[in-house]
Structures are given as C-alpha cells and as structure tokens.
C-alpha cells in the first residue's frame, strides 16, 4: 500500500488531504492480512540459498533484535517496564530501542491504534528494512479490545500490517512480552528454508 504525502499549504487543505487519506485507508483495510507464516515461506525460498549461512544469519538476527518504540497507549508502559532494569530485555539481545524505523527490525505496537494513527503505523512499517517483524501487544492491537466497536479505533492491526506474534493481555505483563519475544526468537530460527513447517513447538 502506498502512502502519498500530499503537497499542501494551509491547515484546512492539510486536514482535507489527511481526511481523504484516512477514509481511503479505511476502505482498503477491511479484512485482516494473513500472518507472515502463511506467505513468508515463498519469499524465503526465492531469496535464501545456503542453509548453513542461513542458520548463522538467523542465529545472529535472533540475538540482536533492535525494537522500534511504538507506544500508543497504556500498554506502552509495560513495554518500557520490560526494557528497564527490573525485567532487563537486554538479556535477550533486545538492547536498544530505536527511534528511527530505518534502524529497527522489530516493531512492538503497544496500545490502541486509532484510524487517524493507522496510516502512520503503516508508513513506519514500510520504512523498516527487511527482515522485519511485528509484535501486536495487548488486546487493543490484537482485536481493538474494549474499543472494538468504537467509531475511531482500528479493530486489530493485522488489517494494516502483517503480525508475527500476538501478546494478549490488557495490558500484558512485561514477562508476557518477554515470552512473546522468545517465541519470536523461535520463529526466526525456525522460519527459514531449513525448517519449512513454521509451527512453533
């Protein structure tokens, strides 16, 4: 999906352009995007040739994930808690939270995503270099949560971006998020040509 940044001069024009963008976005995002497990395999078959190199790469990637800060609501505090010293995400190689999508490879979407924010989520996802992963943290990002029926909330971010790991809870404890990240590690290791069945054991 392409996001066009409109050339505008006045706030009114900017508002109208943004409104059109959001409305067209809503009409495009009506059904969930299948999770990468369903379609990533094809891509990998085309791109990756050597199994041993691949294993080494996956091992390296698994242990040096740079997450992107995407705290949108209350869940963000549990994400921050996970990164701070008590839960110490650095043990899992999740050392530095990046502020720039270009330096990140994991997007942790923590919090309620409104339709007004949705184009920004998509834009940031598009700016991240491959390989990239997405964790949907909390009931709001998974399905809209309490706000599912709301007029302004996106009912599940898998309508906007493909999601690798879902961490349920409202909010999930930092431990659950860490567990989600270890699941992602397993996925990175297994999700290659080496092991075509991508199921997590």
């Amino acid at each position: 999906m392409e996001i066009i940044r409109p050339e505008v001069s006045t706030p009114q024009e900017a508002d109208i352009a943004e409104g059109q963008l959001i409305n067209s976005f809503i009409s495009q995002c009506t059904s969930p995007i299948p999770d990468p497990d369903k379609w990533l395999e094809e891509d990998l078959k085309r791109n990756i040739l050597l199994t041993t190199v691949d294993t080494a790469l996956a091992w390296a990637r698994q242990r040096s994930i740079f997450p992107l800060m995407f705290g949108l609501a209350c869940c963000a505090f549990e994400m921050i808690g996970m990164a701070a010293s008590r839960f110490d995400a650095a043990r899992f190689g999740l050392d530095i939270f990046r502020w720039s999508p270009r330096q990140a490879d994991l997007m942790i979407v923590a919090g309620t995503v409104t339709w007004k924010m949705a184009p920004a989520v998509r834009m940031v996802y598009d700016q991240m270099p491959e390989p990239k992963w997405v964790i949907a943290m909390g009931a709001c990002t998974i399905s809209g949560g309490t706000f599912r029926e709301s007029y302004s909330v996106c009912p599940g971010i898998n309508r906007i971006v493909p999601v690798d790991v879902y961490v349920p809870g409202c909010p999930p404890r930092p431990e659950s998020l860490l567990y989600g990240i270890t699941r992602l590690h397993a996925k990175i290791i297994k999700g290659t040509i080496d092991n075509p069945s991508l199921s997590l054991k």
């Binding site: 508002d15 943004e18 409104g19 059109q20 959001i22 409305n23 007004k116 007029y151 302004s152």
Partner: peptide, 16 residues
C-alpha cells in the same frame, strides 16, 4: 478564529 475538526478526520460522517 479557526473552526476545524480536532480529534477526528475531515470527512468523518456524523458527530459521535
């Protein structure tokens, strides 16, 4: 001086 929508986007239908 500048009466525009604040929280919702332009083109949203109705007043929730």
């Amino acid at each position: 001086p500048d009466l525009r929508r604040l929280l919702l986007w332009e083109g949203f239908n109705g007043h929730p």
